[in-house]
């Protein structure tokens, strides 16, 4: 893909010149590796320095590492800056309505179980309008991967408080500071029954690629919270902020991701502000393949053949009509 024509002025103003240069460097380094997944025609509409660039590169690298073909993947997105994701990846995409990516993805997957379905959306999309679908998708345990980009702000509508913004956030929609407590994505995912829950910062490219690939391989609903700087509307949480705080959770001594209680204890410490030096645990926080089967495992009608591949040219209803005689 073509990255934006970066105007030095814009980058300097946002204080992100170094970050963006780093992204450009990364793209140069990996361009040949991910070329099968590139949409070279499409010029990005993201702001220079946006966290999405690194997430996008990580995603393509993860796809390469999984050795799957572009037509085997469908990215279903909501509306928002993250929602533009499918346009920048060469594979199938459905750019849905704001907040409705999960139900569309559910339909895509149930109709064609052979497709790897990835859902991409932002915090406003997923936890605002989409919250109800999020809860039901988690309990459904359909085999799809949900990358939820969290920059704690509405970007596309120019900077309003989001459901994940910390209490007290001052934006144009909450000039006196937000009153509500933010949603904790990892907590929501685990308590609603997701069987794979992770958090990543694409500034750690190696870990992000690895976790995304594992999320895709996981049989069941996999959620990856993507921590993401918004250079335009949430500049205090920039690349530097996350770089200083994000740590690889798998390297910590008590790491125990198959234990839900361990993961929830971490969540509670975070919510209570008890984490030393504001470190942010990144990596797989909960993962249990054996907890329960996926939704599709329970559907005999497409066990042998995906619904879209079944012959419908001459369905026999005569036996049924007999019953109405």
């Amino acid at each position: 893909m073509k990255l934006v024509n970066t105007s030095e002025d814009v980058l300097k103003k946002s204080g992100q010149i170094n970050d963006h240069e780093e992204v450009l460097r990364l793209y140069d380094e990996h361009s040949s590796e991910v070329k099968d997944w590139d949409e070279p025609e499409h010029k990005s509409q993201w702001c220079p320095g946006c966290g999405n660039f690194a997430i996008l590169l990580a995603f393509k690298k993860a796809m390469v590492s999984l050795k799957i073909r572009p037509e085997e993947v469908c990215i279903v997105s909501g509306i928002g800056q993250a929602g533009k994701f499918p346009h920048y990846v060469k594979c199938y995409g459905v750019e849905t309505l704001h907040g409705r990516a999960l139900p569309v993805a559910t339909g895509v997957k149930l109709a064609n179980k052979d497709v790897n379905v990835v859902v991409v959306g932002g915090d406003g999309d997923g936890f605002g309008l989409g919250m109800g679908h999020f809860v039901h998708s988690a309990r459904r345990n359909l085999d799809v991967t949900y990358l939820i980009h969290n920059n704690e702000i509405y970007g596309l509508t120019k900077g309003q408080t989001s459901p994940t913004s910390p209490k007290g956030t001052k934006t144009v929609s909450t000039p006196n500071g937000s009153i509500e407590t933010p949603i904790h994505p990892v907590e929501q995912a685990i308590t609603n029954g997701a069987t794979f829950v992770a958090r990543c910062f694409a500034g750690d490219m190696e870990q992000t690629v690895r976790v995304m690939a594992q999320a895709m391989k996981h049989k069941g609903f996999a959620i990856v919270e993507m921590l993401q700087p918004c250079v335009s509307y949430n500049p205090s949480k920039n690349h530097q902020y996350f770089k200083e705080r994000c740590i690889r959770v798998e390297e910590s001594g008590d790491y125990n991701p198959t234990n839900k209680n361990w993961a929830l204890a971490l969540v509670h410490r975070e919510k209570a502000g008890l984490i030393k030096d504001e470190k942010i645990a990144c990596g797989i926080l909960y993962h249990n393949d054996s907890e329960r089967g996926t939704y599709l495992d329970e559907l005999p009608e497409s066990a042998d053949l995906a619904l879209v591949k079944q012959d419908i040219s001459n369905v026999d209803i005569e036996g049924l009509l007999d019953k109405f005689e």
Binding site: V76, V94, T96, L97, R100, P103, V104, A105, T106, G107, V108, K109, L110, A111, N112, V115, G132, H133, H136, L307, V308, I312
Partner: peptide, 17 residues
């Protein structure tokens, strides 16, 4: 809302929905 969006997804996939 979920119902119709499920159906749109299945139709996009290629199934009659």
């Amino acid at each position: 809302i979920a119902a119709i969006n499920n159906v749109i997804g299945a139709a996009a996939s290629g199934a009659r929905a």
